[in-house]
């Protein structure tokens, strides 16, 4: 069983996201451990990028804060290495293809393995383009997490059959960010995926209430919450640990 599969093994998974280096990498280290303590099953860590085209304003701003504070890919790897000495929780990077490409696919994946990163989410690498990275990632036991969107339709089967780790179902059209209501028929998409693969399914984009978490847990294996947590970090800066812990308790209890 891969480390990622463990996150979905015996319970529904709560998957928080935060941007590395926001407000600084020491705090990211602390907040990751806090997220685990509060009940996260897997943690998604954003490597900041100058032009995150799939992100809404909240996570865009976190990227700006992290880069302005001097966060780099190398420093993120160092931070993750330290986290790994403290915990076995599955860790997944979310970043854009250019930082990975520029770092070198081979070098990037090798460092992922060395630091203890289990998977990679790249929003601007659709199924058609994953060929250039897939084999290298597999060589280093890094799962490429596939995304499925409300518009995927007949693509669902192709993507799901080739998926590793877990499948990230994008709940809504547009970019990341808190939404009061999710209108897409997510349930139908999830059942379509479940019909063709056993790879766990996690739903993200717009989720920020306990009711949404409970609803999606009824038919998916996990929920991903990003902007709501990043907002707390934006608000409390270096003193966000308690707020993050309280928020997660409230979401999953």
């Amino acid at each position: 069983m891969s480390n990622i599969q463990k996150a979905f093994a015996d319970k529904k998974a709560f998957i928080p996201f935060l941007t590395a280096g926001d407000p600084n990498l020491d705090k990211t280290y602390e907040y990751i451990l806090q997220l685990e303590k509060a009940g996260a099953a897997l943690i998604e860590i954003g490597i900041p990028f100058s032009d995150p085209i799939a992100e809404g304003p909240v996570i865009q701003a976190a990227n700006v804060r992290a880069l302005s504070a001097g966060c780099t890919t190398d420093k993120v790897f160092d931070m993750v290495g330290k986290v790994r000495q403290k915990t076995d929780i599955p860790l997944v990077f979310l970043t854009y293809l250019n930082p990975v490409f520029k770092y070198g696919y081979e070098r990037f994946c090798a460092r992922c393995k060395e630091a203890g990163i289990d998977g990679l989410i790249i929003p601007d690498m659709p199924f058609e383009e994953k060929g250039e990275l897939k084999e290298i990632a597999r060589k280093y036991d890094v799962d490429i997490i596939s995304l499925i969107a409300p518009t995927s339709k007949e693509r669902i089967e192709t993507i799901a059959k080739d998926a590793d780790g877990y499948i990230y179902v994008v709940s809504s059209m547009g970019v990341t960010g808190v939404r009061s209501e999710i209108k897409t028929n997510v349930k139908e998409i999830v059942s379509h995926i479940k019909a063709v693969t056993d790879v766990p399914v996690a739903i993200g984009f717009g989720i920020n209430t306990r009711a949404q978490v409970q609803e999606f847990w009824q038919y998916a294996d996990g929920v991903i919450v990003g902007s709501a947590i990043v907002k707390l970090i934006e608000k409390y800066g270096e003193n966000a640990a308690d707020a993050i812990g309280d928020y997660i308790h409230q979401m999953i209890s």
Binding site: E129, A149, P150, V170, M173
Partner: peptide, 22 residues
């Protein structure tokens, strides 16, 4: 490799949400 290549350049590096429309 996807369509729309000029040598090694080009491709379709966009979010899944846009793929069917593209």
């Amino acid at each position: 490799m996807s369509k729309g290549r000029y040598g090694i350049h080009g491709g379709q590096y966009i979010p899944e949400t846009l793929m069917n429309e593209i």
